[in-house]
Each structure stands twice: as structure tokens, then as C-alpha cells.
């Protein structure tokens, strides 16, 4: 089993199975550019620095990739990534503890930076699910957003929404 070492911004080393890293477009490009797949290259001696990802976040990303080992890798921007996507139970449990916290934000930003499309999709969907069926005031409370609308503005929005069933 070929291991490739990832180095986080706080200089923690994470030896990771080569196969797992195919899920990350960014790391895959680096592996190709650094010739790490060549038999003559000593991959273990050439760690990949990831200056935009902290160790605790990278650890979570690797944990997610391990669980999704072998899943088809999504490519390109797919408009089908929409409201119908279902977050599997394992992923829901994975995201839940830090759902509203900055750790989830960092994980999502890391997914974007590392170009792990499935993780980005599921992470975004998990957040969008927190809006599901909630009223404006409920979303405000959950996300700690102050109410900027005047009562008149709120009434105008409420009236517009009356068209819907």
C-alpha cells in the first residue's frame, strides 16, 4: 500500500493511503505534478504541504475520505446538485456535532480548497437542510443572525409569500 504524507498548516504529518487521495482534485494534481506515482520516486520522502488546512480539519477530511473510499469521484459542475440530494445517515452524523460551528465552516472551506466535490456537496446540503421548513425568525435564532427588517418590511415579505401554497 502506497502512503503519501500530507502536511497541515500547523505542520502535522498525516500519512494517507494513495487510493483515498483520488477524491481530491487539488491533491491529485499535486501528485501528478510531483511525479509521486512514478515507481522511481520515493513518495514517502516527498510530503505534500497543505498550507490552507489546519491539522484538526485535515484529520476530519481524511476520516471522511476513508469512509467514502471507492465512491465514484464527481467531476465538473453538475447542476443536478440540487434540493433532491439526500445526505446519507453516516454523513449526517459526521457533520452534526459541528453543524452550526466554525469547524463545519473550516471543513467546508477545506473541501472547496482540496476540490473534494462530494464532500463539498454533502456539507452544503447538510447546512441547507438546517433551513428546511424553518421560518425566517427560526433561522435567525439558530444562526445567530440579528433582525434587520422593520415591521413594515417583514409585513411586505409576508404578503408576497402569501401567494404560495
Amino acid at each position: 500500500m502506497v502512503l503519501i504524507t500530507l502536511v497541515s498548516s500547523d505542520e502535522q504529518n498525516f500519512p494517507v493511503e494513495r487510493e483515498l487521495l483520488k477524491q481530491s482534485g487539488t491533491i491529485e494534481t499535486l501528485i501528478v505534478n510531483m511525479n509521486l506515482d512514478d515507481e522511481d520516486t520515493d513518495a514517502a520522502a516527498m510530503p505534500i504541504p497543505l498550507p490552507n488546512v489546519k491539522g484538526d480539519v485535515l484529520e476530519k477530511v481524511i476520516q471522511w475520505m476513508e469512509h467514502h473510499k471507492g465512491d465514484p469521484v464527481k467531476e465538473g459542475d453538475n447542476e443536478d446538485n440540487n434540493a433532491e440530494i439526500v445526505v446519507p445517515q453516516w454523513d449526517d452524523d459526521f457533520f452534526k456535532p459541528a453543524m452550526y460551528g466554525s469547524k463545519h465552516l473550516e471543513l467546508t472551506v477545506a473541501a472547496s480548497y482540496l476540490d473534494i466535490k462530494n464532500l463539498l456537496t454533502l456539507s452544503c446540503k447538510a447546512i441547507s437542510n438546517t433551513f428546511k421548513g424553518k421560518t425566517g425568525p427560526q433561522i435567525r435564532e439558530e444562526w445567530g443572525v440579528p433582525n434587520e427588517f422593520t415591521p413594515e418590511e417583514e409585513e411586505a415579505i409576508r404578503k408576497e409569500n402569501e401567494w404560495s401554497e
Binding site: S128, G133, G136, W143, N147, E148, N161
Partner: peptide, 14 residues
Amino acid sequence: KVNIADRMNLRCTC
């Protein structure tokens, strides 16, 4: 990934 119904509520937030 936010459906139309939830977009309507979301725009009432801020």
C-alpha cells in the same frame, strides 16, 4: 440545494 419554499423563508432572515 435550497428549494423554493425554503428560499422564501431564508430571504425573510436578513
